[in-house]
Amino acid sequence: MAIERSSGTSNVIDVLDRVLDKGIVIDAWVRLSLVGIDLMTVEARIVVASIATYLQYSAAVGEVAQASAPRPSASGQNRLVGRRVPIRARPPAFPA
């Protein structure tokens, strides 16, 4: 079933991509409070702030694909021009 397997540091990036802010997330400030001193269950209860399961994305694959495409940016254009065209020895004469 495997096509081509490799392992290495790139995996850590894939892991970080997922574990830092996806899945079940408790608000950052809460997370700090939880490991702090005073917060206990008698004083606080956990409530669901939001829940989404992204199953609806399968119905909207086309739109998602479009939204994900890279957009040209001004800096991208400049970089492209700069890279593809050799720099000339004399400064270009701008038309008046």
Partner: peptide, 9 residues
């Protein structure tokens, strides 16, 4: 595909 945000109250 799972996004459950929790907070303390």
């Amino acid at each position: 595909f799972v996004n459950i945000r929790l907070k303390l109250e």
